[in-house]
Design a protein around this nucleic acid. Structure first.
Lengths: 137, 137
DNA sequence: CTGAATCCTTCAGGATACTG
DNA sequence: CAGTATCCTGAAGGATTCAG
């Protein structure tokens, strides 16, 4: 390991602009979903599992751990049988909520526009050299 | 390929909640950086390359293409020598700007708190069974 | 109910070199 | 200047199984 491959890269990843830093911890495919789902009060593991729609048990656990590690979630274990674990947002995470919903809101508003742009772009890409329909059939 | 591996998964990825959709296009390590950098007017390729700090030429190109494809950036080629290409935000992307800066702002405010939380979490993890120093040495 | 462990595939992304 | 092409590695994430 460390075959002169991660030298400057390491420094950049660790030190780089805050931009990268933000996304690095909200970057997961499920982080935002979980944060939003947990916004309206403590949520149980299974609740999240069913609320998120498509998440695997593994990824739920992993993402929860990461969010907990970064101080965005607090994990409360109720020593009962069966076990009951609740996750809630920290104050820090609550501050993030506005931006997050802003993001989701934006996505919903422009969902179709984006799909259209995508389709248009892809269609154009399939016609590398056909900008002149005047000449043919 | 397609060994009954991506069936339900596909449907989920394509159709799933808007949450996943948002992040899927802002998810890249550099997308947000580029969007913010381009917020204050048309930006040239090289300008971005030097502004972003750490991005490779390849990733810059790829990310630009993806953002263009999703209708967040417009690419304007000035047929000059040497070539000059400018990227600017679409109105749609401008609406996103507030949330994005909100995110970055949040990150800067809590950068140290997150680092601390992380350190604390990791430290705790290294002491699986030592919550009681009253009993020993 | 709430995970942890293992295996495996895909893909983002870095390094490097070449081009119109 | 503004890319494109190729190679390669690590990390993300899905499926599945085992456990307290």
């Amino acid at each position: 390991m460390s075959r002169s491959h991660t030298r400057v890269t390491d420094a950049v990843r660790e030190e780089a602009c805050p931009v990268t830093e933000v996304l690095d911890r909200v970057a997961g495919k499920w982080s935002v979903g979980i944060l939003i789902a947990a916004a309206h009060g403590p949520v149980r593991f299974t609740e999240l599992e069913r609320a998120i729609n498509g998440i695997s048990r593994r990824m739920l656990t992993l993402t929860l751990r990461r969010l907990e590690r970064d101080g965005l979630l607090v994990r409360t274990v109720h020593p009962t049988v069966p076990p009951k674990v609740e996750y809630s947002l920290t104050p820090m995470a609550r501050e993030l909520h506005a931006s997050l919903t802003g993001l989701v809101d934006w996505a919903e508003r422009h969902r179709s526009a984006i799909a259209a742009a995508r389709a248009a772009y892809d269609t154009a890409a399939e016609r590398p050299t056909a900008p002149d329909p005047t000449s043919a059939r």
